[in-house]
Design a protein around this nucleic acid. Structure first.
Lengths: 233, 233
DNA sequence: ACATCCCCCTATCGTCGATAGGCGGAAACT
DNA sequence: AGTTTCCGCCTATCGACGATAGGGGGATGT
């Protein structure tokens, strides 16, 4: 039943003395989340997968909530931060695409990201990087903070909604479900929606994402320049 | 214990013969969700609030999942759709702001919206309206479907992230928690983030929302015109 | 040799979503 | 009127969940 039954002396994964460490637990939790979805996840299944009994988890991790926070930050950490020497726009572009990719590679994470600010080390580092990139290129503190919020909202929000459409949501049949549901809609009631259902599910999500992201960065730039000319005309 | 203990003949709320109907259940569920958050919600508490025992709910509603779907669509339905005679841009603006307001007035809804497409009647009507507004004003089917996805992602995503920052998340102390957490960050490690924390939590979210939304609509317009000139130069 | 601490165990609690099956009363039918 | 049907609730119960309490065994340091 447990995906991994081992003889008692554990192969020892990492730091050297413990059989388990938080990193391994987080990794297993993420695998389980990706496979079954956040709804089906349970600490008991996670324990079984790790080859231990559920209460033992509580020695390593305070509880489910802390575990989820660790998982989130692990995923956010998979988004590599670009060099600070490139332009702000390129930096935000790289971060945006990287973060989106990290999220949609783990379809359960949107539900975890929701309702909790990204306050793990990696999330904070990312925030600092984005805000820094803006401030270093002429954005006021106010505009930089606006920018960060809008930027992050867009990226996380888009990726979240994207997974809702089943682009690989653990359950492989999800996209087909959506497809057939839309195909069954009465055209006389939803004429415009039904007219474009083909386009809706066919296109490149990456392209749409880039479109909106570029639009937002464009506006950032314009706002920055407007503020600058107001201050020094 | 039950918020509403009643003598057996129920005051009769609505359609006339049943003591309870789905509308009343949905309304009570939403109240409970807003008060306690989605994590603390349970069908048993909902039943208690309605003055019945938990299994009785299953006569009215198939299960928790269906209940949540009904709640979502109820919230989406609180976003009034504008007249189709106004311009597409104004229509999307009205819908965007209306939908955001509906969502953030019920802080639990983002967690419900996540992972489920808005496929209730109100959600479909909204989708049809948005896509229709675009198609009626020179957008190709492809661009209209792109636009709908990006638009919806932005609105829902923004509102979702917004509630994560505790702008009234049931627990009133949430915003203060975030505030004090950010205030305690080491400036040498996160120099740019800590430099703008004041701005981060102070500003008008509505303004930031409008900023990004306008940016996206701007880009829509430009893409539409570009496609049009390509086709008929 | 002994004490200590790490890391996992068993036992158990209260709560959850959901199902099975019963029962009274109102409505509908004859 | 008497009978039947069905609505709308009930009690009893299930298995799974998150979490805590407290025990024990093996490695480590002195």
């Amino acid at each position: 039943m447990a995906g991994r039954a081992w003889p008692y002396p554990w192969p020892d994964s990492g730091d050297g003395h413990g059989r388990l460490d938080r990193a391994e637990i987080v990794r297993a939790a993420l695998e389980l989340l990706d496979a079954d979805g956040v709804e089906q996840f349970s600490t008991r299944k996670l324990a079984a997968r790790l080859g231990i009994k559920s209460p033992s988890l509580y020695w390593h991790v305070k509880g489910k909530e802390e575990l989820f926070a660790l998982v989130i930050d692990h995923v956010v950490g998979q988004c590599a931060l670009p060099s600070r020497h490139s332009g702000w726009r390129q930096q935000l572009d790289v971060i945006g695409h990287g973060l989106r990719r990290a999220i949609i590679e783990h379809p359960a994470t949107p539900q975890l990201l929701l309702g909790r600010p990204m306050f793990g080390p990696n999330g904070l580092r990312l925030a600092d990087h984005v805000i820094g990139a803006l401030r270093e290129h002429g954005f006021t503190d106010k505009l930089a903070s606006y920018g960060y919020i809008v930027f992050l909202n867009y990226v996380v929000g888009f990726a979240s909604q994207e997974t809702a459409f089943g682009k690989g949501t653990g359950q492989a049949g999800r996209l087909d479900q959506v497809k057939s549901f839309l195909a069954a809609l009465p055209p006389e009631q939803y004429p415009d929606l039904t007219a474009v259902t083909g386009e809706l599910l066919l296109g490149q999500f990456t392209h749409r994402f880039a479109l909106g992201l570029d639009a937002i960065l464009d506006r950032f730039e314009r706002e920055r320049d407007k503020a600058a000319t107001v201050r020094s005309p």
